[in-house]
Design a protein around this nucleic acid. Structure first.
Length: 732
DNA sequence: CGCGGAAGAC
DNA sequence: GTCTTCCGCG
């Protein structure tokens, strides 16, 4: 569904950049998949379908062939490709949609969310259905796979500052294929890329007629983004010139909203100054820092890391929306609130469903598949996915642009076989679906049970310090002009379809009547069957009381009430990234204010209070918390408290991650944890004094980039601070 | 069809 | 580290 247009889902550009991937120089499979997904030409082969992030490989052999071509592995086949895909399970980049053949689902949280932690949802009212892709179908939604050529990577200069420059640079990159050519001369890239031009095999043409590429020009969504120009769609942090494509609503570079919300990242800096991004106020998430410079380095997760050159181009408003939507999605998905903790300024979005759109999301998956396979039949009027989408897209999204040829009708593609997807026209469904978290790999599942201490792989992986500074935004996104509409369309259709499916005997789905009240739980459809127990568990953990202990903190930190919603089952995800060290964030902020500290102490960890000091560590009563000034009434062993808290958090994380990461990052994390635990002890108390020592930025950085790392850093900082305090406040 | 271990290439 | 290749299991 979402695919309306094609790629209904918009990913940040960085997601498409191969460079971003840490380990591999070459394009990674998930990048490749995304690339294919975003190209209309390949919709017959692979397309978004079903829930948010869910896609179906309609033609496994073809996909394998393409992949093989890209990698110059002629022997590639679906079996192998799928093995590679399965490796993503542990990384949590993907998970399998059970019950549906060839259907997988991206974990956007990991992919996207991570990168846009700063999003301020609170302000916007618009909500996007959970399942909806982050940026559903907007005209602008396409992302283009940027060619990866490193050389091409934007020069910092360009990226950063000049919007135009960025675009151009980006454009260039994009223009190129993302991939390396096979030695034989076959260039994979060309295949894909050319698809647009027609070079590609059958598919080729789809594209965009809008070749003009001009922004705004092309037809349909694509039009907005010329294949090569997709940048436009990309959002730049501070906007380049508004995207023409941008939806009408967004006007100028600086969206209105942006300014309106103090907290919102956008307002912060549009200044592009290089420093700007990096320099954002500590409170802001690192991600916020949009500066190009920072981006370059920023890598949220090892796997996901944004590419160096990531640029952002976006319309602020759009961005905002996008983020919100995304956030919601994430949220719905079960993103852990903790993630947000890191960013005090960020308002945690509460999921809410659009009044109108309440409908659920997508569900059609199976049907679609079958349809396809069945296919054949020309059953539908629609040709492949698009069929559905386009219409939806239109209605749903109003294109800012003038209608384009491309835009078109679903059928526009000559190539497509008429597949009939299960999609249905959007309509609201009275039910709400509950999203299931993506299923974990077996192991993970198994493992979960055991709580091993582990930390998130992702976070650590990427890196540590370097990335931190960079803003999360390295990616560029294209936003659908209208989220609500988009979401609505996608979701709705899905929901309906889902239901139908159910009736059909498809996988079980939980359908709940929608209650407005629960806005939080958005709709998601998932197969209950498997899934997510794992993830859920994980998530639960996040939310578990322990974490929640100091809900207030969070809220405070955020500045807005975070949704208290209970642990969503859904939450999940990407914990790694998000999980940032819970303790730190809240703590840090508070740091500066003595009051917070106190409050924390009091409220927060009641239990902790009295515990005996630890053995090795200083028994010494921790310094008073209120360093700032609040004389603490008593010397509270903050250390202990914090320590405890910290430990718990870590444990939690560990447990969560454990499951997640088992493979991914094993020991480092643990080790870190251990260390941190040991050290952490005092930390937070130091708040007041600590400040000096620990520059907020650090903390943030860490948090963004790598939770773990950040933890460590923070802890170290705290430690130091604490030490000082201790010295100072010996009396206690 | 899907999963995941193992070995190995890059 | 990211697959690629094989393979046994369900």
């Amino acid at each position: 569904m979402k695919t309306p247009g094609d790629t209904g889902f918009a990913f940040p550009e960085w997601a498409y950049k191969p460079e971003s991937s840490p380990g591999s120089r070459q394009i990674q499979l998930w990048h490749f998949i995304l690339e294919l997904l975003r190209k209309e030409e390949y919709h017959d082969v692979i397309a978004w379908q079903g829930d948010y992030g869910e896609f179906v490989i309609k033609d496994p052999d073809e996909v394998a062939r393409l992949w093989g071509a890209r990698k110059c592995k002629p022997q590639m086949n679906y079996d192998k490709l799928s093995r590679a895909l399965r490796y993503y399970y542990n990384k949590r980049i993907l998970h399998k949609t059970k019950g549906k053949r060839f259907t997988y689902k991206f974990n956007f949280n990991k992919l996207v969310l991570v990168n846009y932690p700063f999003i301020d949802m609170g302000s916007t009212g618009s909500s996007v259905p959970q399942s909806a892709p982050p940026v559903p179908t907007g005209a602008t939604t396409h992302f283009r796979f940027p060619p990866s050529t490193p050389s091409e990577v934007l020069s910092p200069n360009e990226d950063l500052r000049s919007p135009g420059g960025m675009f151009s640079s980006v454009a260039r990159r994009m223009a190129r294929g993302s991939v390396s050519d096979c030695s034989d001369g076959t260039s994979v890239n060309s295949e894909i890329e050319e698809g647009n031009t027609g070079a590609g095999e059958e598919r080729g043409e789809r594209g965009v007629s809008g070749g003009g590429g001009g922004p705004g020009g092309g037809g349909g969504y694509r039009s907005i983004i010329h294949p090569r120009l997709s940048h436009e769609t990309l959002f730049r942090m501070y906007g380049g010139p508004g995207n023409p494509a941008a939806h009408p609503g967004s006007r100028g570079p600086a969206g209105h909203r942006i300014h309106t919300e103090p907290l919102s990242p956008f307002p912060v800096s549009p200044l592009p100054g290089p420093g700007g991004a990096g320099l954002l106020a500590p409170p802001l998430s690192p991600a916020l820092s949009m500066t190009p410079t920072s981006h370059l380095t920023y890598t949220p997760s090892p796997t996901l890391s944004p590419m160096l050159g990531s640029h952002f181009s976006f319309n602020p408003e759009d961005m905002k929306r996008y983020l919100q939507a995304h956030t919601q999605s994430v949220y719905n998905y079960g993103l852990s609130p903790r993630a947000f903790l890191q960013y005090p300024n960020i308002v945690i979005p509460q999921p809410h469903r659009p009044a109108t759109d309440k409908a659920g999301l997508s569900g059609e998956r199976g049907a679609a598949e079958r349809a396809e396979r069945a296919a054949t039949a020309g059953g539908g009027e629609r040709g492949g996915e698009r069929h559905h989408h386009p219409p939806l897209a239109h209605s749903a999204h109003h294109h800012p642009h003038p209608p384009h040829s491309a835009h078109p009708h679903p059928h526009s593609h000559p190539m497509h076989h008429p597949l009939h997807l299960g999609e249905e026209p959007p309509h609201m469904s009275p039910f709400k679906f509950k999203l299931q978290p993506p299923p974990l790999g077996r192991k993970q599942r198994e493992t979960q049970g055991q709580n091993k201490p582990r930390q998130s792989s992702l976070s650590s992986g990427s890196g540590s310090g370097s990335m931190s500074s960079t803003s999360g935004l390295g990616s560029s996104l294209s936003f659908g002009s209208d989220l609500s509409s988009a979401s609505g369309s996608g979701l709705i259709s899905a929901s309906s379809s889902t239901q139908s499916l159910n009736s059909a005997g498809l996988p079980k789905i939980k359908v709940e009547p929608i209650s407005d009240i629960e806005s939080e739980e958005e709709v998601e459809v998932t197969d209950i069957s498997d899934e997510d127990p794992d993830e859920r568990d994980e998530e639960f953990e996040l939310f578990s009381p322990r974490h929640l202990r100091a809900p207030n903190h969070h809220h405070l930190a955020n500045g807005t009430a975070a949704p208290q919603h209970q642990p969503h089952p859904d939450e999940d995800l990407d914990e790694d990234v998000f999980k940032a060290p819970a303790p730190p964030p809240p703590g840090l902020m508070p740091f500066f204010t003595s009051q917070h500290a106190h409050s924390n102490a009091h409220r927060g960890l009641p239990t902790l209070k009295i515990e005996p000091t630890e053995p090795g560590e200083s028994n010494t009563p921790p310094p008073q918390v209120g360093s700032g000034g609040a004389p603490q009434t008593k010397c509270i062993p903050l250390k202990l408290r914090f320590k405890r808290r910290w430990s718990e958090d870590q444990r939690m994380e560990a447990s969560q991650e454990e499951s997640d990461d088992k493979k991914v990052r094993p020991e480092e994390e643990r080790e870190r944890e251990r260390q941190s635990n040991g050290q952490m002890e005092m930390e937070e108390d130091g708040t007041g004094s600590g400040e000096g020592d620990s520059p907020p930025p650090l903390a943030y950085e860490g948090s963004l980039a790598t939770p773990l790392a950040s933890h460590r850093r923070v802890s170290a900082e705290l430690h130091r601070a604490t030490a000082q305090l201790s010295l100072e406040n010996k009396d206690c």
